[in-house]
């Protein structure tokens, strides 16, 4: 099980072997579809997710992925349930829950859950290096004026940020221990947070400054560079993309709802 939210799990499955570009485009298309669909469609899409999950052979903690956003999901659901007018089925101290609210709430929460699960499948089966290479290749046609930077610069920025995450994590731990010894957590909670955030930000900026100076002093130019392993789309990639396209077109107008009278 991966330790962190949205982390990479090494493996050798069908999904791991796909080109990162295929996976990125497929995830993007699926996300568009998710926002288009109603409840029934979402359930079908969830079935599709389970198939992919099985194919990936990684065992990510599906429920744990939701933990960071769980409070928001619950809040959204409650708001929808009680604030949408319609057929009342429960009356709680003047607050009335409606059938329409229930389905709308389920739909919105379902969308978020699916988005997160598809994204976590993408990150679990694609290593950060691959992901960066994929994004770089996808952005290459937009290099220069459109983006304001070349796709290589963006790729460098991304891989640098990814590599710095564990470093900053260690840094934060160090500062946290120092503040603990100065009595952090005894009284003021907010100032406690500030006492961690300011040293962390300062350290991060300093680190970035050092890195950029180090790179410049070693003649980093930031222009076009060839890579050792150029990405290549294989047969499987095209098949997978075709499948996702078919899915997108097939589901596009799938607006059958569970209750015929329910139309939002």
């Amino acid at each position: 099980m991966p330790d962190y939210f949205l982390s990479f799990v090494p493996g050798d499955s069908f999904l791991h072997k796909l080109d990162p570009r295929t996976k990125l485009i497929a995830t993007m298309l699926t996300s568009i579809l998710i926002f288009r669909l109603h409840l029934t469609g979402l359930v079908l899409l969830f079935a599709f997710f389970i198939v992919l999950y099985d194919l990936s052979s990684v065992r990510i903690a599906l429920l744990r992925n939701l933990r960071p956003i769980a409070p928001f999901l619950i809040l959204i659901f409650i708001f929808q349930l009680f604030l949408i007018p319609g057929n009342i089925f429960i009356d709680l101290y003047g607050f009335s829950a409606t059938t329409e609210g229930l389905f709308e709430g389920l739909r919105i929460v379902g969308r978020f859950i699916l988005l997160i699960q598809f994204a976590s499948l993408l990150t679990a089966t694609t290593s950060p290096a691959h992901m960066t290479a994929g994004i770089e290749r996808l952005l290459r046609p937009l290099s220069g004026k459109v983006l304001g930077a070349t796709s290589f610069e963006i790729a460098t920025m991304m891989s640098l940020s990814i590599h710095l995450v564990p470093v900053l994590n260690r840094f934060l731990k160090e500062v946290y221990q120092a503040q603990l010894c100065r009595g952090l957590g005894r009284q003021k909670r907010i100032s406690g947070l500030v006492s961690l955030a300011i040293p962390l930000l300062r350290g991060a900026f300093r680190m970035m400054d050092d890195i950029s100076m180090g790179m410049e002093s070693r003649c980093y130019q930031g222009n076009y560079r060839t890579s050792l392993f150029e990405l290549k789309m294989k047969k499987n990639d095209w098949i997978a993309l075709m499948l996702v396209f078919v899915l997108l077109l097939g589901f596009w107008n799938l607006n059958i709802t569970l209750i015929p009278s329910y139309q939002i």
């Binding site: 840094f171 160090e174 120092a178 603990l180 010894c181 009595g183 500030v194 006492s195 040293p199």
Partner: peptide, 16 residues
């Protein structure tokens, strides 16, 4: 923590 004061190696990082 009240009885033992610690000065860490990179102690200037803890200022805020």
């Amino acid at each position: 923590r009240e009885m033992v004061g610690v000065l860490f190696q990179h102690s200037s990082r803890q200022l805020f």
